[in-house]
C-alpha cells in the first residue's frame, strides 16, 4: 500500500462551499435520473421485456465488469488524492480513463454487431441504440472530466487541500456506472 492507513483529519467538517457543491451535484444526479428513467420506462412501454436472441451476452457482461472495475479504480484515485498521494492519484486516474475508453471501444464493437441483427428501425433496436447511446455519451463526458482533473492535477494541485474537483468528477463517474448497472438488466437480462 502506498497510501497511509491513517484516516485523514475530518475535524472541522466540510466547508460551507463544499456542502453547497455536494448538494448541487446530488440535485444534478436526481435530475439525470429522470432523464434515464424516461428512456428506461419507454423501453418497457414499446417493447415490454422482449430481448432478441442475437444479443452478445458475453460482450455485455465483459463491458459491465470493465465499468465496475473502473469504479473501483476511480474510488482509489479519489482516496489517494485525499491522502495527498499524487502518484497514486495519477496512476488510478489513468487506469480509470483506460477502463472507460475500453468500455466505449466495446460499445462500438457491440453497435457494429447490433446494426446487423437489430438495426435502429426495429423496436428493440430503437430502445437499444437510444439507451446505450445516451449512456455512452455520459461515459464520454465523464472521460473528458477525468482527463481534465488528470491534466490539472499533474503538479499535485488538488490533494487534501482542494479535493472537491476530484471528488465531484469521481462521484459523477460512479453515477454513470450506476446508470449502467440499471441499463444493463433493462436491455439484456429479461
Amino acid at each position: 500500500m502506498t497510501t497511509s492507513a491513517e484516516p485523514i483529519q475530518h475535524g472541522a467538517g466540510p466547508s460551507r462551499q463544499r456542502r453547497i457543491n455536494q448538494l448541487g451535484l446530488w440535485l444534478f444526479f436526481a435530475s439525470e435520473t429522470f432523464l434515464f428513467g424516461a428512456f428506461i420506462s419507454s423501453r418497457f412501454i414499446t417493447s415490454q421485456t422482449s430481448t432478441p436472441e442475437d444479443l452478445n451476452q458475453a460482450l455485455a457482461l465483459a463491458l459491465t465488469i470493465v465499468l465496475l472495475l473502473s469504479s473501483i479504480s476511480a474510488y482509489l484515485a479519489e482516496t489517494a488524492n485525499a491522502h495527498d498521494d499524487h502518484r497514486g492519484f495519477r496512476i488510478y486516474t489513468v487506469a480509470t480513463i483506460t477502463l472507460g475508453a475500453l468500455f466505449l471501444g466495446g460499445v462500438a464493437l457491440e453497435w457494429k454487431e447490433a446494426l446487423e441483427y437489430f438495426p435502429p428501425g426495429t423496436i428493440y433496436g430503437t430502445a437499444f441504440f437510444s439507451l446505450v447511446g445516451l449512456h455512452a455519451f455520459h461515459v464520454l463526458t465523464g472521460l473528458i472530466a477525468l482527463a481534465v482533473i488528470l491534466f490539472l492535477g499533474k503538479e499535485g494541485r488538488f490533494g487534501s487541500k482542494d479535493s472537491w474537483p476530484v471528488e465531484g468528477v469521481i462521484k459523477y463517474w460512479h453515477f454513470v456506472d450506476l446508470a449502467w448497472v440499471i441499463i444493463y438488466p433493462t436491455l439484456y437480462l429479461f
Partner: peptide, 23 residues
C-alpha cells in the same frame, strides 16, 4: 426533475427523424 421528460420526448423525435429509430 420532470423537465428531463420533455427533453427525452423531444430527443426521441430527433432520433426518429435523424437516426432512423422508430419510437
Amino acid at each position: 426533475t420532470v423537465t428531463q421528460f420533455f427533453a427525452a420526448s423531444l430527443i426521441m423525435i430527433l432520433l426518429d427523424r435523424i437516426a432512423g429509430t422508430t419510437w
